[in-house]
């Protein structure tokens, strides 16, 4: 909070947690429970998960939504990655030029709707699908078995949804896998190129080294792909916006080809009426 933030003065009493009461072991309640066999620091009852303290809730006196704390933690990362606010518009055009007309149309429909509600619009990301466990046609339970399999603390409901969402996103996952593979390939290729251009060593040596390196790389990649998966899952499932057209889709060997593609796209965008309108913010 900056200097302009409202100053909230909070006063605490001498003993806001009343430790005086809690530390006094001569109280009736304390001695009575001890008489019955309770030991300080232990829970009551016969189960192991018994709580030893009361539920603590922090006071909420603002309207900040859920997840604000998480966002604070991540702020650092966000800055490093850089904001991608302005990029969306351009990506849309690129998307169309890459032959994703259908998606563009749905996107335009969305924009039209957004125009209706103006600044009110809120974006949402599609998550899992909550489904009934009842199969209407077969008149049977859909996933009784999964419940028996379940051993973790996870409630069955959650698990069910996970299953469902897995099915739902199977297609998108497939594409994810494809991408991963492609990315791996691409990286390999790049490395090869570099190696070839830099040094000329014995092939045997190279192979050995390469294998070693690959192992290392794989480890690295694993971490990387994990990260990638996270970010991708959001961008792919983004209902409203379009998949970003990154260079990762097709193996590109040199910087030149990237540049060439860039120019191609630019040229195409000049040819495309819709895209031009969009660039010049002409609305129809």
């Amino acid at each position: 909070m900056g200097l302009a933030g409202t100053k909230i003065k909070q006063r605490f009493g001498n003993d806001p947690r009343n430790t005086k009461w809690s530390n006094d072991t001569s109280r009736f309640g304390h001695s009575y429970l001890e008489k019955l066999g309770w030991k300080p620091g232990k829970g009551l009852g016969l189960v192991e998960h018994a709580t030893t303290t009361h539920i603590k809730v922090s006071l909420k006196d603002d309207n900040v939504g859920l997840g604000a704390k998480l966002a604070k933690k991540q702020k650092k990362d966000d800055l490093e990655e850089g904001d991608s606010v302005g990029l969306d518009v351009f990506q849309r055009i690129l998307g169309r030029l890459n032959g994703k007309e259908d998606k563009i149309n749905t996107e335009l429909e969305r924009q039209r709707k957004e125009k209706i509600i103006g600044k009110l619009g809120i974006h949402f990301i599609k998550g899992e699908v909550l489904q009934s466990t009842w199969d209407v046609e077969a008149k049977t339970t859909v996933s009784q078995s999964s419940e028996k399999e379940k051993t973790s603390k996870k409630s069955k409901k959650r698990k069910l949804e996970d299953d469902n969402s897995e099915e739902e996103t199977k297609s998108s996952k497939k594409s994810k896998k494809d991408k991963k593979e492609k990315k791996v390939k691409k990286e390999k290729k790049e490395k090869k190129d570099k190696k070839e251009s830099k040094e000329k060593k014995d092939k045997k040596n190279k192979k050995e080294k390469k294998e070693k390196k690959d192992k290392k790389d794989k480890k690295d990649k694993k971490d990387k792909t994990d990260k990638i998966e996270l970010s991708e899952s959001t961008s792919i499932s983004r209902d409203s916006s379009i998949e970003p057209v990154s260079g990762g889709h097709k193996p590109i060997s040199t910087r030149l080809s990237v540049r060439a593609k860039w120019i191609r796209q630019k040229r195409a965008s000049v040819m495309d009426e819709k895209a031009l309108n969009e660039i010049f913010m002409v609305t129809n």
Binding site: A68, H123, G127, L130, Q131, S132
Partner: peptide
């Protein structure tokens, strides 16, 4: 366990937390 008669519900999340 007896299932209920419910229809699928698509769940949507916001991309970031809401200030209000």
């Amino acid at each position: 366990a007896v299932p209920g008669r419910t229809h699928p519900v698509e769940i949507y999340y916001t991309p970031e937390f809401q200030r209000d």
